[in-house]
Design a protein around this nucleic acid. Structure first.
Length: 214
DNA sequence: ACCCAGGGTCATA
DNA sequence: TATGACCATGGG
């Protein structure tokens, strides 16, 4: 495995390069949950449009999403892509939350139980579940996304074959279980990925692969 | 006109 | 367990 010092140093470097990020970009815990599903393999720009559209059509609340006919929901989130699948997934998740008594009720659950429950919902995979756990429920769970994998790869900190759980454990073993730290760290990784490339023609996916050297 | 984006599921070998 | 097809819009 890799040295925890390097993970800690990476965080320090990111933080003083970019400063605090204040994530997740949402006005409520429920909005985080909606965004987590909508952003699956989709640029955040497209998700913003969808969320704006949802808000324009009515209050962004659990009961409303549950009650909305699927095709109407799909139409409202169209700009986020995969809209039929996502409408279904969103209602799977919201239906479950609703059946459990809402966000405040499941917020009482311990992290392990909540994570297992989320993962058992069709359309909620490890990253979506962990986005929700970290950013909506403020649990110390580290989110692994494609940006995280790419960055660790480029820095030579991993080999590339590691599965989701292995990478998550790597961060969670090295870092103190502090949700604010995990929040900021992941947010900084995304911020770094979105930074414009400083050496124009040297890498293929310039915008996300190799921005400012770390 | 192509490539990609803050994934996940399902069918197949 | 490990690939591949599929879902689909919008910006570069």
């Amino acid at each position: 495995m890799i040295s925890c010092d390097k993970l800690a140093a990476l965080y320090d470097r990111l933080l003083d390069t970019y400063g605090p990020q204040r994530w997740w970009p949402a006005e409520s815990a429920f909005e985080v949950i909606v965004g987590a599903v909508l952003t699956q393999n989709t640029s955040w720009k497209n998700v913003e449009k969808a969320i704006t559209g949802l808000k324009d059509a009515g209050p962004l609340e659990l009961g409303r999403i549950v009650a909305l006919p699927r095709d109407e929901l799909a139409e409202l989130i169209k700009s986020s892509g995969f809209f039929n699948v996502k409408a279904q997934r969103l209602q799977n998740l919201c239906g479950w939350l609703h059946s459990q008594g809402g966000l405040d009720a499941v917020a009482q659950w311990d992290t392990g139980r909540l994570r297992q429950a989320l993962l058992s919902i069709n359309g909620v995979g490890p990253e979506t579940a962990d986005d929700i756990l970290l950013y909506a429920f403020e649990r110390p769970v580290f989110v692994i996304d494609t940006y995280t994998r790419r960055l660790l790869n480029r820095l030579g900190l991993i080999r590339g074959r590691e599965d989701y759980e292995t990478l998550r454990q790597m961060f969670e073993c090295c870092l103190a279980p502090d949700h604010r730290l995990y929040n900021e760290y992941h947010a900084l990784i995304v911020r770094h990925a979105k930074e414009k490339c400083t050496h124009h023609n040297q890498c293929r996916h310039c915008a996300v692969e190799a921005p400012i050297p770390l």
